[in-house]
Structures are given as C-alpha cells and as structure tokens.
Design a protein around this nucleic acid. Structure first.
Lengths: 363, 363
DNA sequence: ATTCTAGGCCGAATCGATTCGAGGGGGCCG
DNA sequence: CGGCCCCCTCGAATCGATTCGGCCTAGAAT
C-alpha cells in the first residue's frame, strides 16, 4: 500500500516530465537532459527515459513551460496592416511572406500571423501580447510607430518592411520615390502633361477621397508619401485621389471619380499599386475610355493581376527578395548582431497600358 | 544604504509584474488582478498599479508565463502539408486560410503556420512542439495519420480539412468522389472514351510517375484516392500519372508525358486540381495540340489560374466556406463541445476547355 | 454598541521544464 | 594499491504570472 495517491493509468491528466522521470527512476533534471539532448547523459539512461515516456504516452516537453524557462518561443510574428484575409488577397504581401519564410528558415521558427488593427480586445492575441521572439512589420502601415513602441517596451526585436521605424529597427525598403519619378518621367516622355494620381492610404483612418494638402501633410504612411513625392518631381501639380486600400475595387472607385468628367479627364494615371491600376483600367473600360489609346495607366509592384487582360506598365519591385532580406535581418537580430537594412531597386516594366499622349499621337 | 541590490532604473532587465506590484505597494496577486480585470480590485488600486506599470515601462504580462499558468496560448495552428511558401502559391490554400481566419475570429486567436514536413530538426517549432490550443490540418496530407496521433498524445484538439482523421477529429470535406464522377460523366456525354488522369500525390514521398496499382494501393491521401475512384466509376480503365504536387509545372510535366506519343494520346484529361489542369493545357499548347478542339481538360477547385487564357471547365468547391467551417469547429472544440463535421458539395462549371470528342464532332 | 456581511487585498502554491553547481562512483595512471 | 579526474546524476532555484482560500476592515443592520 503506498501512501502517495498514485495517478491512475489512463487518467485524463497528461503526464509531465516529472512523471516520466519518476517512472524511469531518474530525477526530473536528468529526464530533461535526456530529451533536450544537450548535456552528458549515458545512453542507457536516455533509453530508459525515452522508454518510460513512450509507456506513459508522454509527447515531449510542454512548449509553454519550455519557452517560459528558455525565454524564447521559437515563433516569429508577422504583423500585417490589415485583416489577415485582406493580406491573403494581395499578391505583393504573399510574395513577401514567402520571402520571409525563406529568410527565417535557419531558425526553424514558426510564423505567427498578426494584425495591428487597433487594440485586440479581451484575450485576443495582438502585437502587444503575442509569444514571439521577433517581429516583421509588413507593409506601409500607418500604425507603424505605435507598433514599434509597443515592441520596444516588450524588448522584442523588429524589422520593418517599408516605412522608417526608428533606431534599432532594420528597414527593408525600395526606392519608392526614385522609381515613381522614373515612371512619371516615362509618361512625360510619351507627351503626357495632365496626369492624375491614385494613391495608397495616407493615414490610419484610411481616408478615401481627394488628395488635399492637409491629408498629405498628416501622412503617416511613408510609402504613399514617397511615391507621391516622386510623381510630383515630374508633375508638380499632379492631383488625384487617395484609396482606402490597395485593391481593384478601390482603384475602380478612384478611377471613376477621376475619369467621370470629360472636361477634367487626365491623359494618364499613376496608380501606387498594380491592383489600383487594374481598378482604374476597369473604370476606364466602364466609361468607354480606351486604354492605352485614350488613357495611359502606370502601376506599381510588378505582379500579375488576376483577370486583367492587359500587360500592365508598372514599376516592378522584388517582393520576394524584400521578404527574404527581412527574414535574414530577424536572424541577425536574434543572434545579437545589428540587423542589416536594405533598399532594393525597382525596374520599369513597359507593358501595353501606356502609350503616347493622344493629341501628340494624332499629329 | 539598502542591503538589497536594487535593480537600477533603466537596466537591461525588463520589469516583471512583481516589480510593478512592489512599486505600486501592492502584492503581486493584486497587480495581476488589476491587469486581467477579472476580480474585485478597487479603482484606486487599479489605477495605482497601472501608473506604476507606466513608470516602469512594463508592457503587460509575459505571454509565455501567462500561457503556462493558464494552459492556453491563444494560438491556433494551421498545418500545411508542404513548405509554407508552396501553400502561398496555391489559391485554394489561401482561400481556406482566409476562411479559417474568419471562423476562429471569435477566439481572437493568432494563426501559426506550421508544416508537417517530417520531424523538425533541432529546436524547430513543428507540429509536435508548438504552443497551440488547437490545430487545423489543411489539405489532403499523406502524413495526416501521424500528425493526428502526435496531437492526440499532446491533447490538442484538431480539425481536418480533407482526409479522414479518426475519432474526435471533425472533418471538413467535399464530395470528391461524386463530384469527379459527375465531371467524368460530362466528358463521357461529350463522347470521350479515352480519358487520362493527372492526380495529386498519393503518398508521403510524393512519388511522381505512372499510376500503378501498387501506388494506388499504398495511398495515404484520401483526396487523390477519392477523386481517382470517382473518375473510374465512369472510366474504369482510365490511367494516367501522379504529380508530386499541385502546381502548374507538375501538371505540365505530366501532360507532356501523357500527350507526347500521338499513338496513345487521350482525347480528354481529368486533372485533380486547376493548377495541374493549367499545366496540362500548357503542355498541350507546347505540343501543338488544340484545347478544347483536340483535347478536353477538366480541372478541380474552381479558382482562377493566373496567366491561363482559358475559362477552365472545372469542379468548383467552396474553399472559403470549408475554411470557415473548420474554424468554427475549432471554436466548438475549445468550448468543450464536439466539433461538427461538414461535407460540402462541388459544382461543375463548364468553361471552354472541354468540347465534344473530335471524331464525334467531325461527324 | 456589537455583530454580521462583504468587498478588497495578500500569501503561498502552482503551471512544467531548464539549468547550474555540487556530489558520487568508477576507471585509469602512477 | 592509492589518488586523481572525469563522467554522470541529482537537488534546488528559477522563469513570470495566475488563482484559491483566508484574513482584515469598514460599513450596515439590529
């Protein structure tokens, strides 16, 4: 008769490392060593521990306890600026995720998808309470500043893709301003002078509407601002509309607004993403405006847009490489090194959505 | 002079809840109550704790410690059968992820991407050591059985999308066999008798090659087997090739192998995914075979394939709904209820990649 | 004025594993 | 044959927060 209330076999409670150790006749510390592999444990002992574990149906150390003790969870967070489902619909985001996965592969870490859509209510896992070892901030999020501050306080290293994030946060970016300038230049060479813009959102509210100086001045989104600045280097007076997101539908709405009135209709539109550009083209088609004969459209990203019948003229950016660079920076940060910032270069891809200015071509 | 080696302000060590409690002049337990909100704490005390936290730059309870104590991490794992990057390229997977996100939204949980590609070496976070509360097994993974066994031992509830996973594991599926049968029937009505198949992988090795009886007998992938069975209900002797993955490139390779020899060329090919179908069409075009005039191609999934100029005839499945149902089942399981299994129905979408059998049409 | 009640707060145990320093035993070398 | 060293194992502290039962005090009821 044993005084100890021995847990019945097959009880609901899951066995712990201590149970396994007891069964194998060793101490908990030895059992731990046997599992983690590191440390001097005789083969005989290790085998005995493993056998005991098998008998008890022990599935290995609890990751929660392990991560508490070790201080690392083996998880890298990816913060998307919008609902996860929206990111899945954006080819650029997917390519970046792809690249990130590749970049952090040496860590063997899992990828936790997060959004920074406001404070997560209740027990929701948000950026301020996720068990992650590091974080990649994806996209030109207006909330970038807040996110970085939260992470800094939590002592979690971060890498930002697009958008200056501050000291100690490696930045992976592209030549937004210069690339857009080159694209705009190309339009000017084609004879266009009356150019309108469709931009990405400027602020956390994702205000949709005309490009007012106030809106631009209050911008918290570097990407939108930089691409705008690049366009205005060539067309200082270019105006247009801000979209509430990078999507075909938003592009279509903006396009309809810009093209509806024949009197004020531009001969070319610079969209800040391919999806927006596709939407603009859709709008033009709805209005019976021929692309590129009557309207030239320039995109940004260099993705293939589903369902679009055109070969979009666009500024192609190396999305996958950006993600990979971000992943590699995470690896560096976790190794205690300073993460490396990188700025990639976009290239102008000339497709069939741009053509010489109608008047000029008619001559 | 105080004997206690008081941690200097601004030291590298991050403050803990105990530090905050000390500073606020309350016990750790009270501080915890103040943060979690649950429990009787006077407003004055709560404020004092929050103020102390702010002064110390305390960013909230450590999620690792919290999850150890609470026994829940607030993370739901999604197990993809292949490299994460491969899943990102598969539109069906993305739609399912989208649906899952929607389904588990009420939990406020994060989504951790995992793969079951063998044992994760070293300290990698794999299915056997991820801090997740529940798991969704996505895709017709040949390793499904192993994965379920590991999870069962760890006591982690699971939901399987495609593939019988065993007792206690809700299953979200579609009518693979019946749908394929209907598609095959449609081809027969068009006059096709000589039909070849391009299937998804059958086993964990993702063996690529001819559809041998051995391969089929050793199948561990329900989806491939069921769709195959459905096709053979109509064309009992139909043969073909197994692809190593659902991708355009794999489809192209299989297509080339099946179509290379004019003597044995089938008049129709049933592909088990749209991506494979797109690859088959590419192969046909390379060989100068006209689709659908000389070759009919039937797909499965109902996605839009990027770059494909055809409107694929296919069996459209409700991918998003499948994901959502899986997410809802997870919510049920975590609430202690039995998760609900669901079987969705696919619909035949007739596009322009199928046509009457050439000989018959010529008559 | 005394007792009862209830809201607030605290102490201590607990979650499960890891890690460091110490101790013990066996083998090898002198 | 004795001493030393190395390899293996153990005990105990620790990671940081949560939670349960108990205690104390202020206010209310009689």
């Amino acid at each position: 008769m044993q005084s100890e209330p021995a847990p019945r076999e097959g009880t609901l409670a899951r066995p712990t490392l201590a149970d396994v150790a007891a069964r194998a006749g060793v101490s908990a510390s030895t059992a731990s060593l046997a599992f983690s592999g590191s440390g001097p444990v005789s083969d005989a002992t290790k085998e005995r521990v493993l056998a005991a574990a098998a008998e008890l149906g022990y599935a290995g150390p609890d990751p929660r306890a392990r991560s508490l003790r070790r201080g690392r969870s083996g998880i890298v967070g990816v913060v998307l600026e919008e609902r996860v489902r929206a990111a899945f619909l954006d080819p650029v985001k997917i390519q970046m995720l792809d690249g990130i996965t590749e970049g952090i592969a040496p860590l063997g870490a899992g990828l936790l998808l997060l959004t920074d859509t406001g404070e997560a209510g209740g027990n929701a896992v948000g950026i301020e309470s996720a068990p992650v070892d590091a974080v990649v901030l994806v996209g030109c999020s207006p909330r970038l500043g807040d996110a970085v501050e939260v992470l800094r306080r939590r002592g979690i290293p971060a890498v930002a893709i697009e958008g200056a994030a501050g000291e100690g946060v490696p930045q992976i970016s592209i030549d937004n301003r210069e690339a857009t300038r080159r694209g705009a230049e190309y339009l000017r060479e084609l004879g266009h002078t009356d150019v309108a813009l469709v931009t990405l959102p400027f602020d956390a509210d994702r205000t949709r509407g005309p490009l007012t100086p106030e809106l631009i001045a209050a911008s918290t989104a570097d990407t939108a601002s930089e691409r705008l600045a690049g366009a205005r280097l060539v067309f200082p007076d270019a105006n247009g509309r801000a979209a509430a997101a990078s999507s075909i539908e938003e592009g279509r709405e903006a396009g309809l607004a810009l093209l509806a009135d024949p009197a004020t209709r531009p001969s070319a539109i610079i969209a800040q993403s391919d999806l927006l550009a596709a939407g603009v083209i859709n709008a033009a088609e709805e209005l019976g405006i021929a692309v590129p004969a009557e309207l030239s459209v320039l995109g940004f990203d260099g993705i293939r847009v589903d369902g679009l019948q055109h070969d979009l003229t666009t500024l192609a950016q190396p999305s996958v490489a950006k993600g990979r660079a971000a992943g590699e920076a995470v690896v560096q940060l976790l190794a205690g090194e300073p993460g490396e910032s990188v700025c990639f270069t976009s290239t102008l891809h000339v497709g069939d959505t741009t053509a010489p200015h109608p008047a000029r071509a008619a001559r």
